[in-house]
Write a protein that binds this DNA or RNA. Sequence first.
DNA 1: GCTGAAATTAATTGAGT
DNA 2: ACTCAATTAATTTCAGC
Lengths: 156, 156
Amino acid sequence: MANEIKKLDQNDRNILKALQQDASLSLENLAAQLSLSTNACWRRIKRMEADGIIARRVAIVEPEAVGLGMTAFVAVRTNDHSDQWLKKFAAAASGIDEVVEFYRMAGEVDYMLKLLVRDMADYDRVYKKLIKAVPLSDVSASFAMERIKYETAVPV
Amino acid sequence: MANEIKKLDQNDRNILKALQQDASLSLENLAAQLSLSTNACWRRIKRMEADGIIARRVAIVEPEAVGLGMTAFVAVRTNDHSDQWLKKFAAAASGIDEVVEFYRMAGEVDYMLKLLVRDMADYDRVYKKLIKAVPLSDVSASFAMERIKYETAVPV
DNA sequence: GCTGAAATTAATTGAGT
DNA sequence: ACTCAATTAATTTCAGC
């Protein structure tokens, strides 16, 4: 089964911890840290990649360094809970690069989006793009002034 | 200046787009895609690393694959807006692996945290850890049922 | 499933335009 | 700032335990 939870031993966890912080580490370096041979380490990584535990390796770009100073959380409430509406909304939002995260929520809010934009004018542009694609009645945005922590590493 | 916005040309942008999606691409491969020599490409990457545009390279772990099925957004309101309180709160939250994002907000909510946890019991454990470290009076959590989009790539 | 070494492939440096 | 070639370092495969 593809989406089963695989068992990880302490070496696997340590590999994940290290690579989630720095995937540019050489095998030799990483293996030495964990007192493994390079290719024992290599086989564990390949297994976790095959099992879908390690999804991919990416470069992290500093948003501030490229002028993306504003993070917006957009809470959406809807009356239309049809599958078709969600599909349309999901497709529209997923196609917008500034929408970096998108969740279906439990409780009051139906959907939560996280946007990364340059400034308020840029937010407005993305917002208009969004409501043009799908009619959204109840939308409320909150803006982040400061990013205190941002971590791609998940707790393992 | 370290936190100045550097100018990027189309080649730089294309490199960032590619490496934000897949940092395991070989230089040769990447350079060929963009019709550059490997070493022109390499120098651009090194420059963007030195400029702090590319902050790091990380492995992305699939949360579901390691049993982290629940994302919680925690909105915090406080009466204590002192620097000292924030420092204490920031230190406590930053030290908790399950707190993957943490923002100071404009508007009604003072702080917004994103937590990655196994289940409701795990959320409760992290919540207790948090309020033990700093007294929090007004906390409200929203839970994500489904992650529709999650992107580490920023729009460049 | 591991080690250690060999083979392959990729990253980095350097010379020259 | 680039290309092309040479060098160095990393990854991947293979033989044996």
